[in-house]
Protein backbone atom coordinates (compact mmCIF):
# COMPACT_ATOMS: atom_id res chain seq x y z
CA UNK A 1 0.00 0.00 0.00
CA UNK A 2 1.55 3.32 -1.01
CA UNK A 3 1.85 6.03 1.57
CA UNK A 4 -0.27 9.14 1.23
CA UNK A 5 2.31 11.95 1.10
CA UNK A 6 2.13 15.10 3.18
CA UNK A 7 1.80 18.12 0.96
CA UNK A 8 3.05 21.60 1.70
CA UNK A 9 1.02 24.79 1.93
CA UNK A 10 2.85 27.48 -0.01
CA UNK A 11 2.75 30.82 1.71
CA UNK A 12 4.28 34.28 1.60
CA UNK A 13 7.50 35.16 3.43
CA UNK A 14 7.24 38.45 5.34
CA UNK A 15 9.34 39.59 8.29
CA UNK A 16 10.79 36.11 8.76
CA UNK A 17 7.35 34.47 9.07
CA UNK A 18 5.28 32.52 6.57
CA UNK A 19 1.83 34.11 6.57
CA UNK A 20 -0.98 33.47 4.11
CA UNK A 21 -2.09 36.50 2.17
CA UNK A 22 -4.12 38.81 4.38
CA UNK A 23 -6.62 38.73 1.53
CA UNK A 24 -6.94 34.95 2.03
CA UNK A 25 -6.66 34.57 -1.72
CA UNK A 26 -4.69 31.91 -3.53
CA UNK A 27 -4.13 30.91 -7.14
CA UNK A 28 -3.43 27.63 -8.84
CA UNK A 29 0.08 26.85 -9.97
CA UNK A 30 0.70 24.21 -12.61
CA UNK A 31 3.79 22.41 -13.79
CA UNK A 32 4.93 23.04 -17.35
CA UNK A 33 4.02 19.81 -19.19
CA UNK A 34 7.05 17.73 -20.09
CA UNK A 35 5.59 17.03 -23.55
CA UNK A 36 3.37 19.05 -25.81
CA UNK A 37 -0.31 18.34 -25.48
CA UNK A 38 -0.08 16.77 -22.04
CA UNK A 39 -2.48 18.06 -19.40
CA UNK A 40 -0.83 20.55 -17.03
CA UNK A 41 -0.22 19.00 -13.63
CA UNK A 42 -1.55 20.83 -10.58
CA UNK A 43 1.24 21.73 -8.15
CA UNK A 44 -0.15 23.99 -5.46
CA UNK A 45 -2.40 26.83 -4.47
CA UNK A 46 0.08 29.66 -3.98
CA UNK A 47 -0.81 32.69 -1.92
CA UNK A 48 -1.98 35.60 -4.03
CA UNK A 49 -0.33 38.60 -2.41
CA UNK A 50 -2.30 41.82 -2.08
CA UNK A 51 -1.54 45.52 -1.72
CA UNK A 52 -1.73 45.13 2.05
CA UNK A 53 0.74 42.24 1.97
CA UNK A 54 3.12 44.44 -0.04
CA UNK A 55 2.82 47.24 2.50
CA UNK A 56 3.39 44.83 5.37
CA UNK A 57 6.47 43.58 3.57
CA UNK A 58 7.80 47.14 3.22
CA UNK A 59 7.29 47.71 6.94
CA UNK A 60 9.18 44.49 7.69
CA UNK A 61 11.98 45.43 5.30
CA UNK A 62 12.29 48.92 6.81
CA UNK A 63 12.43 47.45 10.30
CA UNK A 64 15.18 45.06 9.29
CA UNK A 65 17.27 47.71 7.51
CA UNK A 66 19.11 49.31 10.48
CA UNK A 67 20.36 45.99 11.79
CA UNK A 68 21.26 44.42 8.46
CA UNK A 69 22.98 47.51 7.09
CA UNK A 70 24.94 47.99 10.32
CA UNK A 71 26.11 44.37 10.43
CA UNK A 72 29.75 44.01 9.54
CA UNK A 73 30.44 43.12 5.95
CA UNK A 74 32.18 39.98 7.18
CA UNK A 75 29.05 38.97 9.07
CA UNK A 76 26.79 39.58 6.07
CA UNK A 77 29.15 37.57 3.91
CA UNK A 78 29.01 34.64 6.32
CA UNK A 79 25.24 34.74 6.62
CA UNK A 80 24.82 34.82 2.84
CA UNK A 81 27.33 32.03 2.38
CA UNK A 82 25.27 30.04 4.86
CA UNK A 83 22.28 30.52 2.56
CA UNK A 84 24.22 28.80 -0.21
CA UNK A 85 25.03 25.92 2.15
CA UNK A 86 21.37 25.44 2.96
CA UNK A 87 20.44 25.71 -0.72
CA UNK A 88 22.91 22.96 -1.50
CA UNK A 89 21.29 20.75 1.17
CA UNK A 90 17.93 21.30 -0.50
CA UNK A 91 19.25 20.71 -3.98
CA UNK A 92 16.84 17.84 -4.71
CA UNK A 93 13.82 19.96 -3.93
CA UNK A 94 15.13 22.87 -6.00
CA UNK A 95 15.71 20.55 -8.94
CA UNK A 96 12.14 19.30 -8.71
CA UNK A 97 10.83 22.86 -8.36
CA UNK A 98 12.80 24.15 -11.33
CA UNK A 99 11.85 21.17 -13.51
CA UNK A 100 8.19 21.75 -12.78
CA UNK A 101 8.43 25.50 -13.15
CA UNK A 102 10.49 25.69 -16.32
CA UNK A 103 9.86 22.31 -17.95
CA UNK A 104 13.55 21.41 -18.01
CA UNK A 105 15.18 18.01 -18.35
CA UNK A 106 16.66 16.64 -15.13
CA UNK A 107 20.18 17.44 -16.32
CA UNK A 108 19.30 21.01 -17.29
CA UNK A 109 17.48 21.54 -14.01
CA UNK A 110 20.55 20.28 -12.11
CA UNK A 111 22.71 22.74 -14.03
CA UNK A 112 20.37 25.62 -13.28
CA UNK A 113 20.33 24.84 -9.55
CA UNK A 114 24.13 24.57 -9.52
CA UNK A 115 24.42 27.92 -11.26
CA UNK A 116 21.98 29.50 -8.80
CA UNK A 117 23.90 28.24 -5.76
CA UNK A 118 27.20 29.31 -7.31
CA UNK A 119 25.74 32.73 -8.10
CA UNK A 120 24.73 33.12 -4.47
CA UNK A 121 28.24 32.23 -3.35
CA UNK A 122 29.68 34.71 -5.86
CA UNK A 123 27.60 37.52 -4.44
CA UNK A 124 28.21 36.51 -0.81
CA UNK A 125 31.90 37.07 -1.39
CA UNK A 126 31.30 40.65 -2.53
CA UNK A 127 30.10 41.88 0.87
CA UNK A 128 33.52 42.86 2.18
CA UNK A 129 35.04 43.75 -1.20
CA UNK A 130 32.63 46.46 -2.36
CA UNK A 131 33.97 49.25 -0.18
CA UNK A 132 37.51 48.63 -1.34
CA UNK A 133 36.63 48.35 -5.02
CA UNK A 134 34.14 51.23 -5.10
CA UNK A 135 35.47 53.53 -2.39
CA UNK A 136 38.75 55.03 -1.35
CA UNK A 137 40.71 58.08 -0.41
CA UNK A 138 40.22 61.24 -2.46
CA UNK A 139 43.42 63.25 -2.93
CA UNK A 140 41.90 66.70 -2.40
CA UNK A 141 43.93 69.86 -2.84
CA UNK A 142 44.08 70.85 0.80
CA UNK A 143 44.92 69.64 4.32
CA UNK A 144 41.97 67.24 4.56
CA UNK A 145 41.40 63.56 5.01
CA UNK A 146 38.66 62.78 2.49
CA UNK A 147 37.20 59.34 1.96
CA UNK A 148 34.33 57.86 -0.01
CA UNK A 149 32.58 54.58 0.63
CA UNK A 150 29.43 52.87 -0.64
CA UNK A 151 26.37 52.51 1.57
CA UNK A 152 23.09 50.69 0.97
CA UNK A 153 20.25 52.89 -0.21
CA UNK A 154 17.56 51.26 1.97
CA UNK A 155 14.48 49.23 1.06
CA UNK A 156 14.52 47.88 -2.48
CA UNK A 157 11.46 46.56 -4.31
CA UNK A 158 12.34 43.82 -6.77
CA UNK A 159 10.26 42.48 -9.62
CA UNK A 160 11.84 39.06 -10.05
CA UNK A 161 12.08 37.66 -13.57
CA UNK A 162 9.06 35.76 -14.87
CA UNK A 163 10.90 33.00 -16.73
CA UNK A 164 14.10 32.26 -14.80
CA UNK A 165 12.44 31.09 -11.61
CA UNK A 166 15.52 30.28 -9.54
CA UNK A 167 18.74 31.45 -11.23
CA UNK A 168 17.08 34.72 -12.20
CA UNK A 169 15.52 35.08 -8.77
CA UNK A 170 18.84 34.59 -6.99
CA UNK A 171 20.52 36.94 -9.45
CA UNK A 172 18.20 39.82 -8.54
CA UNK A 173 17.96 39.25 -4.76
CA UNK A 174 21.60 38.64 -3.82
CA UNK A 175 22.96 41.91 -5.29
CA UNK A 176 20.37 43.86 -3.30
CA UNK A 177 21.01 42.35 0.12
CA UNK A 178 24.76 41.74 -0.06
CA UNK A 179 25.51 45.43 0.51
CA UNK A 180 23.04 45.81 3.38
CA UNK A 181 19.80 46.73 1.63
CA UNK A 182 16.60 44.90 2.47
CA UNK A 183 14.27 43.59 -0.22
CA UNK A 184 10.61 43.17 -1.04
CA UNK A 185 10.43 40.72 -3.92
CA UNK A 186 7.51 40.00 -6.21
CA UNK A 187 8.18 36.53 -7.56
CA UNK A 188 7.42 35.11 -10.97
CA UNK A 189 3.64 34.81 -11.20
CA UNK A 190 3.46 31.45 -12.97
CA UNK A 191 6.63 29.99 -11.45
CA UNK A 192 6.55 31.00 -7.78
CA UNK A 193 7.42 27.74 -6.04
CA UNK A 194 11.24 27.90 -6.29
CA UNK A 195 10.93 31.27 -4.53
CA UNK A 196 9.04 29.70 -1.66
CA UNK A 197 11.72 27.05 -1.32
CA UNK A 198 14.33 29.81 -1.34
CA UNK A 199 12.37 31.53 1.43
CA UNK A 200 12.66 28.35 3.50
CA UNK A 201 16.43 28.42 2.97
CA UNK A 202 16.59 32.07 4.02
CA UNK A 203 14.49 31.37 7.10
CA UNK A 204 16.88 28.63 8.25
CA UNK A 205 20.20 30.33 7.55
CA UNK A 206 20.60 33.24 9.98
CA UNK A 207 19.26 35.87 7.59
CA UNK A 208 17.38 38.20 9.94
CA UNK A 209 13.63 38.28 9.37
CA UNK A 210 12.57 41.10 7.06
CA UNK A 211 15.84 41.30 5.12
CA UNK A 212 14.22 39.42 2.25
CA UNK A 213 10.46 39.35 1.87
CA UNK A 214 8.87 37.28 -0.87
CA UNK A 215 5.43 37.89 -2.32
CA UNK A 216 3.94 35.34 -4.68
CA UNK A 217 1.33 36.73 -7.03
CA UNK A 218 0.89 39.11 -9.91
CA UNK A 219 3.25 42.00 -10.54
CA UNK A 220 0.46 43.88 -12.32
CA UNK A 221 -1.46 43.96 -9.05
CA UNK A 222 1.34 44.58 -6.53
CA UNK A 223 4.07 46.48 -8.36
CA UNK A 224 2.25 49.83 -8.69
CA UNK A 225 1.91 50.02 -4.90
CA UNK A 226 5.59 49.32 -4.42
CA UNK A 227 6.63 51.76 -7.16
CA UNK A 228 4.65 54.58 -5.54
CA UNK A 229 5.45 53.63 -1.92
CA UNK A 230 7.12 56.55 -0.12
CA UNK A 231 9.20 54.31 2.11
CA UNK A 232 10.79 52.34 -0.72
CA UNK A 233 14.16 53.70 -1.86
CA UNK A 234 14.75 51.79 -5.08
CA UNK A 235 13.03 49.47 -7.50
CA UNK A 236 14.31 46.78 -9.86
CA UNK A 237 12.02 46.46 -12.88
CA UNK A 238 13.70 43.36 -14.35
CA UNK A 239 10.58 41.24 -13.89
CA UNK A 240 8.45 43.63 -15.93
CA UNK A 241 9.55 41.67 -18.99
CA UNK A 242 6.74 39.28 -19.98
CA UNK A 243 4.66 40.16 -16.93
CA UNK A 244 1.07 40.49 -18.15
CA UNK A 245 -0.45 43.92 -17.60
CA UNK A 246 2.78 45.52 -16.36
CA UNK A 247 4.04 48.78 -17.89
CA UNK A 248 7.56 49.51 -16.71
CA UNK A 249 7.21 53.07 -17.97
CA UNK A 250 4.28 53.66 -15.62
CA UNK A 251 6.14 52.06 -12.73
CA UNK A 252 9.19 54.24 -13.38
CA UNK A 253 6.97 57.32 -13.53
CA UNK A 254 5.40 56.42 -10.19
CA UNK A 255 8.87 55.85 -8.75
CA UNK A 256 9.82 59.45 -9.65
CA UNK A 257 7.54 60.82 -6.93
CA UNK A 258 10.14 60.17 -4.24
CA UNK A 259 13.09 59.83 -6.60
CA UNK A 260 13.56 56.10 -6.19
CA UNK A 261 16.66 54.65 -7.74
CA UNK A 262 15.33 52.66 -10.71
CA UNK A 263 16.99 49.70 -12.39
CA UNK A 264 15.28 49.49 -15.76
CA UNK A 265 14.49 46.15 -17.41
CA UNK A 266 16.80 44.82 -20.09
CA UNK A 267 16.07 45.44 -23.76
CA UNK A 268 16.00 48.56 -25.88
CA UNK A 269 13.37 51.23 -26.38
CA UNK A 270 10.06 50.56 -24.71
CA UNK A 271 10.52 46.81 -24.99
CA UNK A 272 11.50 44.89 -21.85
CA UNK A 273 13.51 41.71 -22.30
CA UNK A 274 14.52 39.27 -19.60
CA UNK A 275 18.31 39.14 -19.48
CA UNK A 276 20.44 36.04 -19.92
CA UNK A 277 21.14 35.11 -16.32
CA UNK A 278 23.83 32.59 -17.17
CA UNK A 279 26.24 35.45 -17.97
CA UNK A 280 28.56 36.78 -15.26
CA UNK A 281 26.76 39.71 -13.63
CA UNK A 282 27.95 43.27 -14.01
CA UNK A 283 28.82 45.41 -10.98
CA UNK A 284 25.95 47.70 -11.91
CA UNK A 285 23.46 45.26 -10.40
CA UNK A 286 24.98 46.07 -7.02
CA UNK A 287 25.88 49.72 -7.60
CA UNK A 288 22.28 50.49 -8.62
CA UNK A 289 21.33 50.25 -4.93
CA UNK A 290 24.37 51.95 -3.45
CA UNK A 291 24.90 55.50 -2.32
CA UNK A 292 28.34 57.04 -2.10
CA UNK A 293 29.08 58.77 1.17
CA UNK A 294 32.06 61.11 1.34
CA UNK A 295 33.53 62.24 4.66
CA UNK A 296 35.91 65.17 5.09
CA UNK A 297 38.09 65.96 8.09
CA UNK A 298 40.86 68.53 8.47
CA UNK A 299 44.42 67.44 9.18
CA UNK A 300 46.51 69.38 11.68
CA UNK A 301 48.88 69.15 14.58
Amino acid sequence: MSRVDVRKTYKLYIGGAFPRSESARSYEVYAVPSRAGARPRFLANASLASRKDARNAVVAARKAFPGWSAATAYNRGQVLYRVAEVMESRRAQFVTDVRDAEGLTPARAEAVVSAAIDRWVWYAGWSDKLAQVLGGLNPVAGPFFDISAPEPTGVVAVLAPQASSLLGLVSVIAPVVVSGNTAVVVTSADRPLPAVTLAECLATSDVPGGVVNLLTGRAAEIAPWLASHRDVNAIDLTGAADAPGVSWAELEAAAADNLKRVLRPGGSGAEAVEPDFTATPALSRMTAYLETKTVWHPKGR
Partner: peptide, 15 residues
Protein backbone atom coordinates in the same frame (compact mmCIF):
# COMPACT_ATOMS: atom_id res chain seq x y z
CA UNK B 1 26.12 62.07 0.64
CA UNK B 2 28.72 64.43 2.05
CA UNK B 3 29.69 64.68 5.71
CA UNK B 4 31.93 67.54 6.76
CA UNK B 5 33.52 66.87 10.14
CA UNK B 6 35.04 69.91 11.85
CA UNK B 7 34.80 71.75 8.55
CA UNK B 8 32.03 72.70 6.12
CA UNK B 9 31.40 73.52 2.46
CA UNK B 10 34.58 71.98 1.10
CA UNK B 11 34.66 70.98 -2.56
CA UNK B 12 37.24 69.32 -4.73
CA UNK B 13 37.23 67.76 -8.20
CA UNK B 14 38.51 64.47 -6.77
CA UNK B 15 35.77 64.23 -4.15
Amino acid sequence: GVIWANTFNRFDPTS
